[in-house]
Amino acid sequence: MEELLAMLSDLHPEVDFTAENDLIGDGILDSMDIVNLISGIADTFDVTITARDIIPENFRSADSIMALIRRLEEEG
């Protein structure tokens, strides 16, 4: 979780990602951020997020991104 938060604040240092829970709706993460994030996640967690997983529900908050990573690890 720490690694993910570090990655996120690297993208947007001004945002407190532990508190935000509508990252997409509030326009904090855009598609470019998401691509960066995915390649970071692939690197750190060794999971592949494919286009089908990129739906707003999975990227709403740091928690939901973490849940997605866990699920993919599970299915791995």
Binding site: S31, V35, T48, T50, A51
Partner: peptide, 15 residues
């Protein structure tokens, strides 16, 4: 974004 950008940017080749 959903049907071109994400598929391309997360494709095997790109990875």
């Amino acid at each position: 974004r959903d049907y071109l950008f994400y598929p391309v940017s997360t494709s095997g080749f790109m990875t």
